[in-house]
């Protein structure tokens, strides 16, 4: 089995077959992670450059671990500011690193489309680790993997993303991936954070959290960023919690079982209460574990060494 895509730039336009292949492969790799020596030689001799133009702990750590678990060599580049502000263009930075002979670029960047631009100027395989508010495909893949573990199929599943949809790459990738997989996707959040013509992406907009809770199988709760207050997108964290915070009382009132997801880091007591985040329906730490497996699968499938699959004992 081979992927149709050559890079993982986003989930928009990625086929159901490709997503399924990635998720299936990730399940195999998850078993590898449970072994005493959680490592396979699949990408031995391959080099991955992690270019992080925005601060990131979790995603970067997860990618680095995944790279090590598939035996790739890794180099890291991080810049807290845009390459433009540093004086060197993104293209120059990337081409210089590529000239040192690398095979993959994993990039986090504040500009939507930055990985697409890179894919046009480099020969390496590009994996988008988040481009502005556009896409974060591996996050959505690990979210889907986690949902699939619980519900076996994504078809018909009702997933509602709650929070600042406008500025969220997690929301967009979830929407693209889940809609392709046949799930029903909703979004819920303050009207100031729901972008224009949202319905055109194939989702339902829920203005009130109660309406969302009445229907959701899964809640994917986004981190609310304090700096959005300055842009007059919401008045206070207190009011946000009152209107959209996921509390145990709110969930109890529905009398329904709803799976709780969060891409992290959590603002406890704001968008999500601790007793929910740490409660029975929370799969937040499973998401983190699955993140490594999904990223191993993506690296492996984009690595062009597919024939090895048969010989590798991790193949299911």
């Amino acid at each position: 089995m081979q992927l149709e895509i050559r890079h993982l730039l986003g989930l928009e336009g990625v086929s159901r077959e490709d997503i399924t292949l990635i998720l299936d492969t990730a399940e195999s790799f998850k078993k590898v992670l449970e072994r005493p020596i959680p490592k396979v030689p699949t990408l031995r001799g391959k080099t991955v450059a992690n270019l992080f133009f925005e601060p990131s702990t979790r995603t970067r750590f997860s990618f680095e671990l995944a790279e090590k678990r598939v035996s790739a060599d890794t180099v890291n580049f991080s810049a807290s500011t845009s390459s433009v502000l540093k004086g060197e263009t993104l293209k120059d930075t990337a081409r210089n690193i590529e000239a040192m002979k690398i095979d993959f670029v994993v990039m986090r960047h504040s500009a939507p489309g930055a990985p697409h631009f890179l894919a046009r100027c480099l020969n390496s395989v590009i994996i988008n680790a988040g481009d502005g508010a556009h896409e974060h495909p591996t996050q959505a893949l690990l979210d889907m993997m986690t949902m699939r573990e619980q519900f076996t199929s994504l078809e018909g599943l009702k997933v509602i993303v709650v929070g600042d949809i406008e500025h969220s790459r997690v929301a967009r990738s979830n929407i693209y991936g889940l809609v392709t997989m046949g799930a029903h996707v909703g979004v819920c959040g303050p009207a100031t954070m729901i972008p224009r013509q949202m319905e055109d992406l194939g989702v339902t907009v829920y203005p009130a959290i109660e309406d969302a809770l009445a229907e959701a199988d899964v809640l994917n709760i986004l981190r609310i960023q304090l700096e959005r207050q300055k842009q007059a997108l919401f008045p206070s964290l207190r009011e946000y919690r009152n209107l959209f915070g996921i509390t145990l009382e709110r969930l109890d009132r529905t009398g329904r079982d709803i799976m709780i997801m969060h891409p992290g880091p959590i603002n406890r007591g704001v968008e999500l209460d601790s007793n929910v985040a740490d409660g029975d329906y929370s799969v937040i730490l499973d998401q983190v574990t699955n993140g490594v497996a999904v990223r191993m699968a993506v690296l492996y499938l984009l690595g062009g060494e597919r024939q090895k699959l048969e010989g590798d004992d991790h193949a299911a």
Partner: peptide, 15 residues
């Protein structure tokens, strides 16, 4: 332009 495409791309829009 702010609209369907900026929403899809996560790009800040000019309405």
């Amino acid at each position: 332009h702010e609209g369907r495409v900026s929403t899809a791309l996560g790009m800040p829009g000019i309405p």
